[in-house]
C-alpha cells in the first residue's frame, strides 16, 4: 500500500467535509500513515472463500405495515435547528459564485 502523504489527507478531508491547518495536516499525515499501516495487518490473511459479516447476529430485513403513525411536530424541529423561520430550517446560500 502507498505511503500516506499530504495529498491523501487533503483528498480524504474533502470527502469527509473536514479541513485542517497546515500544521494539523503534517501531524495527521504522520499518524495516519502509522494507523493505516497498523490496520493493514489484515492483508496477511487469505479470505478468498470467506463471506463478509455485516452484522454479528443475523437477522432478515425488518419491515412493518405501511400505516400512518405519529410524526414529530414541526415546531420541535424549529426549536432544535440552529436557525429556523416559518416552519423551515434556514441555511446559508447553496449556489456559490
Amino acid at each position: 500500500m502507498p505511503e500516506i502523504g499530504l495529498k491523501d489527507v487533503e483528498n480524504t478531508a474533502k470527502l469527509a467535509k473536514l479541513e485542517f491547518t497546515g500544521a494539523e495536516k503534517e501531524k495527521f499525515a504522520g499518524q495516519f500513515s502509522k494507523i493505516v499501516k497498523f490496520v493493514e495487518k489484515i492483508s496477511e490473511l487469505n479470505t478468498d472463500d470467506i463471506p463478509p459479516t455485516t452484522h454479528a447476529v443475523e437477522k432478515r430485513n425488518v419491515i412493518r405495515e405501511d400505516s400512518v403513525g405519529e410524526s414529530m411536530p414541526i415546531d420541535v424541529f424549529e426549536k432544535t435547528a440552529p436557525k429556523a423561520l416559518d416552519r423551515s430550517i434556514v441555511v446559508p446560500r447553496v449556489i456559490e459564485h
Binding site: N11, L18, F28, F32, I35, S43, L45, P51, P52, T53
Partner: peptide
C-alpha cells in the same frame, strides 16, 4: 482522526482492500 480513517477505508480504490477485507476477517 476516526472519521478520516473511516472515510479513507471506504473510499474508491481502497474499499475492497480495507473495508470488505475487514468484514471477511470479522467472519
Amino acid at each position: 482522526r476516526r472519521i478520516m480513517l473511516g472515510t479513507y477505508v471506504l473510499s474508491a480504490g481502497y474499499y475492497d482492500a480495507y473495508y470488505m477485507k475487514a468484514l471477511k476477517v470479522r467472519t
